[in-house]
């Protein structure tokens, strides 16, 4: 009793923005329903098996006058029980297989008419996100934060450039691997607007644990506005400090790795920083976005995310402040 109460209480911890037991989209719904059904049915089977095992142990064996004498009718009864048990087991297994088959068909159908395709590329230890569009000038590259229109199916194309990662937004869908040189397709749909957290689910190196991502589902109009904003080149720096920062960004190693749209910085091996200040977190969900955290990250990425592929760039206090002032304005 106490155990049951404790388990129910601990399940409360499973609600929230990252939980397979708190589904927020059709795919996750299907999976949650399936797992609960499996657990329920398997529990019943387990209890029945335990009873069947316990009964003969507790029952007194029938007294026999001649131990070696065969009792044909009793044997016949026993055979029937075994045949029925095997039949029930087979039927249960076939039933569960069919259920999981149909659940899979439902998952596959979710994205059949998806209007939006997003390419998600895993890197050690962040996510590159590219919105595909038939018009090349509307193709958008960003990082770590995936905005989608709520209530619409979205097709994700998953791949990687280094090692195998796995994309998992528990509240919306099951996990699927990102494999170098191979493209996996995952369809997701969020029923309601909201922020859903995801996490790399395949060990991929030192900072695997700090490889988070966010799906932000918004009403269509808001999503379109977001996309249009993100397509704009970076905001021009205002104020002397930010201007100095923009200049420093181009003169220092930052420019070798990062892209800032509308400036000569065109590196493609690290997150696109064109609208960095519009994101909610830094370094794949490691820090929340704020001026202080930006400065902390740039001053010592190896202290915050040891082994990350962003090196420590030596800057003095003024230079650091200037670069932070510039990046902070890239809304």
């Amino acid at each position: 009793m106490a155990f049951a109460a404790a388990s129910v209480l601990s399940l409360q911890g499973c609600a929230g923005w990252q939980s397979a037991l708190d589904p927020k989209g059709p795919a996750a719904n299907e999976l949650a329903w399936l797992i609960w059904f499996f657990i329920g049915l398997c529990s019943v089977v387990w209890v029945l098996v335990m009873i069947a095992l316990a009964a003969p142990l507790l029952m007194r064996p029938p007294r026999r006058t001649e131990p070696l004498m065969l009792d044909a009718s009793a044997d016949h009864r026993k055979l029937r029980v075994v045949v029925i048990a095997v039949g029930l087991t087979a039927a249960t297994l076939v039933g569960l297989t069919l259920l999981s088959f149909f659940a899979n068909r439902t998952l596959a159908a979710i994205g059949s008419n998806a209007a939006l395709t997003i390419r998600v590329t895993g890197h050690q230890w962040w996510w590159e996100v590219r919105y595909e569009d038939a018009t090349p000038s509307r193709i958008l590259t960003t990082a770590n934060e995936i905005h989608i229109p709520a209530g619409e199916p979205v097709r994700l194309l998953l791949t990687s450039t280094d090692v195998i990662h796995s994309f998992w937004i528990p509240s919306l869908a099951g996990k699927l691997d990102l494999i170098p040189g191979h493209m996996n397709v995952l369809d997701i749909k969020a029923d309601k607007p909201g922020t859903y957290r995801g996490q790399c689910a395949e060990f991929c190196g030192a900072q695997h644990a700090n490889m988070g991502t966010f799906i932000i589902a918004e009403p269509r109009a808001k999503f379109d506005a977001w996309w249009n904003d993100q397509l704009q080149p970076a905001a021009a720096p205002t104020g002397d400090e930010a201007k100095a920062g923009a200049d420093l960004f181009l003169k220092r190693p930052c420019v070798m790795c990062h892209k800032i749209g509308g400036t000569p910085a065109g590196g493609t091996v690290a997150p696109d920083l064109t609208h960095i200040a519009s994101r909610q977190t830094l370094a794949a969900g490691t820090l929340t976005m704020s001026r202080g955290n930006l400065a902390a990250w740039i001053a010592d990425p190896q202290g915050i995310k040891p082994g990350s592929h962003m090196p420590v760039v030596e800057l003095n206090g003024d230079e650091l402040n200037a670069i932070v002032a510039y990046l902070e304005g890239l809304k």
């Binding site: 220092r252 190693p253 420019v255 070798m256 090196p311 420590v312 030596e314």
Partner: peptide
């Protein structure tokens, strides 16, 4: 110079 940190 200044484009790649010294350790790198």
């Amino acid at each position: 110079r200044n484009k790649i940190p010294d350790d790198q």
